[in-house]
Amino acid sequence: MEKLIVKNLNHHYGFTSILENINFELNKGQVLSIVGPSGGGKTTLMHLCADLIDVQEGNIKNSFTSSSFAFQESRLLPWKNVIDNIALGLKAQKISTKMAQVRAKKIALRFGLEEIDFDKFPKDLSGGMRQRVSFARALVTKPSLLFLDEPFSALDIGLKKELQSLLIEMIDKKELSVLFITHDLMEAIRLSDEILLLKADPGRIVKKFKYDLPQSKRDDKFVYSQSAKILQDEEIIDTFELELK
């Protein structure tokens, strides 16, 4: 069984402790969200899990066969057009250029890009379109584990919902596991099987919330009522400093 296991993880920058005693497990087909205030070490934790930075203390075991990363900013290569940017993800997988182009075009259409956009450079795309391209690039490889670092934060509501539904469709088929960072609680409730609350200074997990209802069955009412409930939680109030001072 493919799994991501994080055990007793600590991380420092110089003398500042960023993460302290982090433990969790992400199983195949699951969506795990990490929520918390900005600057709480969420991105560092994600980068550690994705092996972008080295683990200092503790253990991360990743047995997923493949993974990809969608960043907060689109991080497209400015000198490549839309299709070549998407196909970049496939270059590591020894797929012929022709096949890569076909697959890139297919997924681009699915993500709401149009054929006239295919030859455009990132500078000629709107922010939302760039984010779609970045998303398509992450998913074209059909990863078994997807790292999402607040990729929806800069998008308008419509586009956000559209991309989330695409994601939910894949989660539903159990073909994708997701480690998801966000500071938007509603987003987390809509998408996650489990939410970890990360408190800042130093980053540590103070509470876990579980949701068993399949993502595709969660309607707005569910999301709103759960959000209202979670916002009453004392740990949440404390972590996000919601109380009036």
Binding site: H47, A50, L52, S68, F69, F71, E73, R75, L77, W79, K80, L88, G89, K91, A92, T141, F147
Partner: peptide, 23 residues
Amino acid sequence: DLKEMGKSFKLPLHVKFLDIYFP
């Protein structure tokens, strides 16, 4: 940022050089 992106896709060295660094 772009280096990190290349790393996240586990791009082989020659692809990294040709597509990310060289241009």
